[in-house]
Design a protein around this nucleic acid. Sequence first.
DNA 1: CCTATTAACATACGCCTCGTATGCCAATTG
DNA 2: CAATTGGCATACGAGGCGTATGTTAATAGG
Lengths: 197, 197
Amino acid sequence: MHRPRKEMIAETRAKLIAAARHAFGTIGYAEASMDDFTASAGLTRGALYHHFGDKKGLLQAVIAEIDGEMAARVDEVASRAPTRWQHFVDECTTYIEMALEPEIQRIMFRDGPAVLGDPAQWQNANACTASMTDHLTALQRDGVVVPDLDPETAARLINGASSQAAQRIANSEDPEATSKKAIAAFKQLLEGLRKQS
Amino acid sequence: MHRPRKEMIAETRAKLIAAARHAFGTIGYAEASMDDFTASAGLTRGALYHHFGDKKGLLQAVIAEIDGEMAARVDEVASRAPTRWQHFVDECTTYIEMALEPEIQRIMFRDGPAVLGDPAQWQNANACTASMTDHLTALQRDGVVVPDLDPETAARLINGASSQAAQRIANSEDPEATSKKAIAAFKQLLEGLRKQS
DNA sequence: CCTATTAACATACGCCTCGTATGCCAATTG
DNA sequence: CAATTGGCATACGAGGCGTATGTTAATAGG
């Protein structure tokens, strides 16, 4: 049988990623001891180094996984919306909602950039921005968005604003109220991209 | 004489901050060995722990210093502008320009948040956002900016977009061209805040 | 079917870094 | 001038990380 072997390996990788994701997302990358979270997965650092090279490599794998999940979710939600513009706005607000998860904030917005550098340079972890860029391009073609605008650049700026919005909500005393204010301010900024009719 | 003593102490603090700032800004917080950069200042970790408690405390001090410098610069540049709105826009673009410094990006936007958490929660390091919040409030009062908007929230979102713009420019192959695109996109977003006349 | 090789891990070792406890010296204070 | 405090260095112990080295089980070739 070929399968059991392959499956065991895949399972090992998955267990390591899951354990690391949990550790990174709660206590943070720097505080997460490789000995500890590999042990919590019933393994040792030997497996980690074999599969991912080093701690950074494992972080990359975790980030790739999260990025994939986020992109899938954004894609799903945004697909049902009456207009393209609404589609785009929904995409952004969904992104903010997801960014409320402490795990995502910690890994994708704080530890990730600190350890791996500018997120824009990450390989296998740009699905969300790519999607937003595509939609902005389409909106521009349709004349909904102002023409003199680089879509990818705009998508990045919006990403920055989104993550700040999410952080503000997440750290708020009254998340409900803060959410309203943050989403409102965010949508207001987006209005700047629209061509006035 | 009281002075020499006090001066020596202040000088020690300053040397530690300067050495740490350089180390953090180049190789990064995690890679910066306390033994190394204290030695480069002619001191030991003993002085560091005495004055700043721990590595995080020193990072806070470094951040406070940089924040002060940034706020002073923003204040200076923005003070000469014909209109209040222009004043505000200049403030933002100056902020982006400053954020191009690798040292500032690394310390203020990457390592700082990873180690100390959400910048919005930082004490003694919110001068820039505070200033932008004030100006937004004034603009709102004057009817230049849309009324239904929380100034501080908006300031934070703009901050997020600014830092992304700066990162994009800094990591670009052609900074000159990217700068034009990023600043343009940024200003376009800001237009969303204006009340249409 | 048997052997050789490789791959998937675990173990063991040394280095570096950090935090704390302790010690020393100079400067202030009365 | 003595006592005390504060500024800083030294010394020690504990982890954490990376690498080098096993060990075992699965595959491949004859």
